[in-house]
Design a protein around this nucleic acid. Structure first.
Length: 257
DNA sequence: CAAATTTGACCCGG
DNA sequence: CCGGGTCAAATTTG
């Protein structure tokens, strides 16, 4: 909580929200509801979510499930955190990254409204693949899902198209030749990002070498085979990266949309 | 019948 | 002791 949030961050985040709401309001009158409006909604959702986090991180008395997870970091396990937002309610259940996961547990998280589900790679035993992911609905927006991946997929699975991109993203971590580690537990990764001020919602790392996209390109990204469009927006990257220059294995990627 | 999910118990670090 | 993460037996699903 040292870095995290302060009131000015919260204030500017909220100001941002307000601005977006106003703009959205204006666009609502237009006949063809522009894609930009949809985009604004996405921006709003993530901004609100961020605001909540900030508020929680600076007010100890507020319950917080997510911030707890945020401040907690596992050693030696690369982890990618991102927020996925299903395009619609019915797609929420279909959040599918194309990889095959098997649920192995579910827990109620302190202060969080919804339980967190735990998945491991289906081929853990057959191929010793240690990839894991946790999924939790963000309280507040039923369409927003907090997905945390850790471990890299070392298995070869018959993946459909969408999977490959994700695989690449997740494995992109080993910056140079490092595939030799059998455990796959951690892959040295290139810090693929520029750091952003927590309160500059729409700025993106100019030098981001991530195969992601621009905030405005909500469209052709990570598309599940179910036809659900899942936009991922590369967004905020917090304190830890600064304070942890000594630990190249540790990164928290924060993406939302 | 095999594979996946559910769910409470168990484990472990803080 | 508490809370998050995992295990594994029972149950469901295909």
């Amino acid at each position: 909580m040292d870095g995290g949030g302060d009131k000015s961050a919260l204030a500017s985040e909220l100001a941002q929200v307000l601005a977006m709401v106003r703009e959205l309001e204006a666009r609502m009158d237009q006949d063809p509801l522009p894609a930009a409006a949809r985009e604004l909604c996405a921006g709003l959702a993530s901004s609100v979510d961020r605001s909540i986090r900030i508020a929680r991180s600076c007010c100890a008395d507020l319950p917080d499930g997510n911030a707890a997870a945020q401040s907690k970091r596992r050693q030696g396990t690369p982890c990618v955190r991102r927020q996925l937002r299903a395009a619609s309610l019915q797609d929420a259940a279909a959040l599918d990254d194309g990889l095959s996961w098997r649920k192995y547990g579910q827990k109620d998280i302190l202060g969080a409204k919804y339980p967190r589900a735990y998945f491991r790679c289906t081929h853990r035993h057959s191929q010793g693949c240690l990839a894991t992911k946790h999924v939790q609905r963000a309280d507040g927006d039923p369409l927003l899902h907090d997905v945390v991946y850790h471990g890299a997929h070392t298995c070869v699975q018959a993946a459909h198209p969408g999977a490959n991109q994700l695989r690449q993203e997740l494995q992109l971590q080993h910056g140079h030749s490092a595939q030799d580690k059998d455990q796959g537990a951690c892959s040295p990764l290139a810090l693929a990002t520029g750091l952003l001020e927590p309160m500059t919602p729409y700025s993106f790392a100019s030098g981001a070498d991530f195969p992601l996209f621009s905030p405005t390109g909500l469209d052709g990204q990570l598309r599940s085979s179910h036809g659900a469009g899942i936009g991922v927006e590369f967004e905020t990257l917090f304190e830890e990266l600064f304070t942890n220059a000594t630990e190249p294995f540790q990164w928290d990627l924060y993406a939302a949309n």
